[in-house]
């Protein structure tokens, strides 16, 4: 957490946050699938000021051979931030943070994928953060799940994600950048919503046991709301065509 400007209040006397949200309110989220031509599946997510693009390639045979698994396909994830995505230019290429995030996102998505159907192959997910404003890993997971579904990779469920955190002593949903910088904790989480299986859970900050569990429960609720938006985005692509066709008759 960073040095906090003096007098900065993250929650005002009316219980409103700096961007006007209530404690348990998500930032505005919009999602669209199939936005890239080359990729087998793709999605674009705007989540607050986050702008995130995800693409899926595969399943495709991988070389060198020692990377292949004879009983299943493997999943590879690359989370990458564009140099212009943050206030101060980020040096291009993977830093330690991106390497860790790529790894935990892989662990968050893998349980949902049925990769036993594609031995010796790899499914590659590329997540490009075009603009970052806290919560990029959960937004990236939401985008990646959509891209996987768009690629037709068989899945047990659509992985959804959201973060909760603590600011000015209160547990709130979906921190923005200032809240993340000057708040006390951030708890990003991903779930497979059908059976409430938690596939990503991290915590950066300092919380009591009760606060931690409150944040986890709240993040699950947030992820379920995000899940509804993911379902809508997936269906919208086809329903829009059906409506357009019906409208022309």
């Amino acid at each position: 957490m960073m040095g906090r400007p003096e007098g900065l209040k993250l929650i005002d006397e009316n219980g409103r946050r700096i961007d006007g949200r209530k404690k348990y309110e998500l930032r505005p989220i919009s999602m669209e699938v199939n936005v890239l031509k080359n990729a087998d599946g793709s999605a674009y997510v705007e989540w607050g000021k986050n702008k995130i693009l995800a693409a899926v390639y595969g399943p495709r045979e991988i070389h060198p051979k020692h990377l292949q698994r004879p009983d299943r396909g493997i999943l590879r994830v690359r989370y990458n931030m564009a140099p212009f995505s943050v206030e101060d230019r980020k040096k291009p290429g993977p830093d330690r943070r991106s390497v860790e995030i790529s790894k935990v996102i892989r662990g968050a998505l893998e349980p949902a994928l049925i990769l036993e159907m594609f031995p010796r192959t790899a499914v590659d997910i590329f997540i490009e953060v075009l603009q970052a404003d806290a919560g990029t890993r959960v937004a990236g997971i939401a985008a990646a799940s959509l891209a996987l579904a768009d690629a037709g990779i068989p899945m047990r469920d659509i992985v959804s994600a959201c973060a909760a955190g603590k600011i000015d002593g209160e547990i709130v949903l979906d921190l923005n950048k200032d809240e993340d910088n000057y708040g006390e904790a951030d708890v990003p989480l991903a779930i497979m919503p059908m059976k409430n299986d938690i596939t990503l859970l991290q915590m950066d900050g300092y919380l009591t046991r009760e606060e931690f569990m409150e944040a986890v429960r709240l993040a699950i609720k947030g992820a379920k709301a995000v899940y509804q938006k993911q379902r809508e985005a997936l269906k919208r692509k086809y329903l829009a065509v059906a409506e357009e066709v019906a409208g022309n008759e």
Partner: peptide, 25 residues
């Protein structure tokens, strides 16, 4: 003091909420 200062789910697999509560305690 009983405060949590880091949490990390690693690798594949998933956890139920009850399992997280058990792990915390």
């Amino acid at each position: 003091t009983g405060h949590v200062s880091a949490a990390q789910k690693g690798e594949s697999g998933s956890f139920k909420l009850e399992e997280v509560m058990y792990a915390l305690d």
